[in-house]
Amino acid sequence: MNQRAIVAAAAATLLSTLFVATPAMAQSKEKCYGIAKAGQNDCASLAGTHSCAGQAKLDNDKGSWKYVTKGTCKQMMGMTADEAKMAAGKKS
């Protein structure tokens, strides 16, 4: 095989991989509060107790969130941001 054929084959493989992976990556995501395990949250908490991913101290903290596939949060017993804010307000 000559070098041009090798490069063409590699490019074709890369493009086919991208086309196959695109539908999975294109799925929309939503923030789901109250399901993150300690140290596995995706970003800052509602209460401001931490400001970055992986800093949640408690499992299922109502103020910490993870990205999940849209439409699956309720199935995991999670909450929207508004629901989490209300839950936090009721605790105070």
Rank of each mutant, 00 (worst) to 15 (best):
K31H: 09
T49A: 14
R4N: 02
G34P: 04
V20W: 12
S28Y: 06
T72M: 03
P23W: 07
C32S: 00
S16I: 13
M79F: 12
E83T: 04
K57C: 10
A84I: 01
A56H: 10
A12S: 11
Q55I: 07
G34W: 02
A24C: 06
Q27I: 07
G48M: 07
T17V: 15
G34S: 08
N60F: 11
A84F: 03
G78Y: 03
G48S: 06
Q3L: 04
A26T: 08
L18G: 15
A53K: 14
M1P: 03
K90T: 13
N60M: 04
T22I: 11
G34R: 02
V20H: 09
K70R: 09
A47N: 15
G54T: 07
D42K: 08
K66T: 04
C32Q: 05
Y33H: 06
A87K: 09
G63Y: 00
D61K: 03
K90C: 04
S45T: 12
Y33C: 05
D82H: 01
L46Y: 07
D59Y: 05
G39V: 12
E30S: 02
H50A: 11
T49V: 12
I35D: 01
A24M: 11
K62V: 15
G34K: 05
R4E: 06
F19S: 09
P23A: 09
A8N: 05
K90N: 13
C73T: 01
K62R: 09
C73N: 04
K85M: 11
K90V: 10
K66Q: 13
M1D: 05
M25F: 14
T17S: 15
A12R: 09
L18I: 15
M25E: 07
G39F: 14
A10K: 14
N41K: 08
S51W: 14
G89P: 08
S51P: 10
C32V: 02
L14T: 15
A88H: 06
E30T: 01
K70C: 01
K70N: 06
G63C: 02
A21C: 09
N2Y: 00
D82T: 12
C43T: 10
S28P: 05
L58I: 08
Y33D: 08
G71W: 01
Y33P: 04
G34E: 00
L18C: 15
K62F: 10
D59N: 12
R4G: 00
D61M: 02
V7S: 05
M77F: 04
S92V: 12
K29Y: 07
S51M: 14
T49W: 08
S45N: 11
S64R: 00
N2E: 00
G89V: 09
A36T: 13
S16K: 06
M25P: 02
G48W: 10
